[in-house]
């Protein structure tokens, strides 16, 4: 709708009222409170990325599969939640639906398609799951139409809470941080302490071995895939409540989740958590600090624009830097 190039014809400077109204908001906003609030924002973003990245990294670690369609499961979770929330008015039902529907979708595609890809090379996996994105995106649009859906956080999580040092922070975002960290702990316990977890770890280390041990591999694979799908679906619903539930919402998140697992080291849950928080903080603080940094020596409009450009590239620069120092990510296998 609204994008105009001032490319070929330089526009005249806005005629009327563009005087020196800049410069008033430079130094002051860098207060400590704002900085802490931005750290919380970065943490919240990172924790949600972790929910996406955990499934991705598990599926890769155990089955050796690159799943581009992971973002579609995020979208499916959000749409399922929006549909159920509209019908029942209950946020908890909506979350349950997001988990269930995404897990079912995960089981279905695992059993029909994904299973055939485990032994293929990465190239085939990339193409097949790219094809799945096309099918899921347009299929969702076919069912739900072309307009974004409504999904809101429940009223009991509305508003802000007062934290120490006079920080006022969104209750819902604080809840997201709590839920995300709880899931991280839960996942850690499942993988370290349960039989399923032992098998998953065995699968990561030596795929042939666990077959020899008499574990039903295809069952285990389906389970791992469903778990990853359910986490992605839950993330979609939780985030959908404060963002926009629309077709294609999974793609930007998917790319970020890949950045996360590559930084963390593919297959490592711990790496996914640390990578996610690193990416969350880098992105949030980059967007916040870089424009201020450039405004130290550039005119304000230019500074915000240059700073914003660099901020949008910051996580990719972070990823390239990590890989140059540690080509297998921070916690990647030997």
């Amino acid at each position: 709708m609204h994008m105009h190039p001032n490319v070929i014809y330089k526009k005249e400077t806005p005629i009327l009222l563009m005087k020196s109204r800049v410069g008033k908001f430079k130094g002051k906003s860098m207060s400590a409170i704002l900085f802490i609030e931005q750290m919380l924002n970065g943490l919240q973003f990172g924790v949600m990325l972790f929910l996406m990245a955990a499934g991705l990294t598990l599926v890769f670690g155990v089955m050796g599969l690159i799943n581009l369609a992971h973002g579609s499961l995020y979208m499916i979770g959000a749409f399922a939640a929006a549909a159920v929330a509209a019908a029942t008015n209950s946020f908890l039902f909506a979350l349950a639906a997001s988990l269930a529907v995404a897990a079912i979708a995960g089981v279905l595609i695992e059993a029909t398609i994904i299973r055939r890809l485990y032994k293929r090379d990465h190239l085939d996996q990339v193409l097949a799951t790219f094809a799945l994105i096309l099918i899921f995106s347009e299929g969702t649009r076919w069912i739900f139409g072309s307009f974004p859906l409504f999904l809101d956080r429940p009223d009991y999580l509305a508003g802000t809470v007062a934290l120490p040092f006079g920080i006022e922070y969104s209750l819902y975002r604080l809840t997201l941080i709590g839920v995300g960290l709880a899931i991280a702990v839960g996942l850690y316990l499942v993988i370290m302490k349960t039989r399923i977890g032992i098998r998953i770890r065995a699968g990561e280390n030596d795929r042939e071995m666990i077959g020899a041990l008499g574990v039903d591999i295809s069952m285990l694979y389906t389970l791992v895939f469903a778990l990853g799908a359910a986490l992605a679906g839950l993330a979609g619903a939780l985030i959908g409540a404060i963002q926009s539930v629309q077709v294609g919402m999974g793609e930007p998140v998917l790319i970020l989740a890949f950045v996360v697992i590559v930084i963390g080291g593919i297959g490592s849950i711990k790496g996914a958590l640390i990578g996610a928080i690193l990416v969350g903080l880098t992105d949030t603080l980059g967007r916040f600090l870089l424009p201020q940094f450039f405004s130290l020596f550039l005119e304000n409009s230019t500074a915000t624009s240059v700073g914003a450009s660099l901020a949008s590239m910051s996580i990719y620069i972070l990823m390239a830097a990590v890989l140059l120092i540690r080509p297998k990510g921070l916690f990647g296998g030997a």
Binding site: F60, I66, H122, V126, I255, F258, V259, V262, I266, S305, A308, S309, S312, M313, Y316, I317, M319, A320, L323, L324, P327, K328, G329, G332
Partner: peptide, 28 residues
């Protein structure tokens, strides 16, 4: 830079460089 990595890491680091160009061109 990218060839220091292999496998999936190579796929993803090349993707990252592509994305850098993408965002740069949007804001240039």
């Amino acid at each position: 830079l990218s060839l220091r990595t292999t496998g999936v890491y190579f796929i993803m680091i090349t993707l990252a460089f592509g994305q850098m160009f993408y965002y740069f061109s949007i804001s240039w």
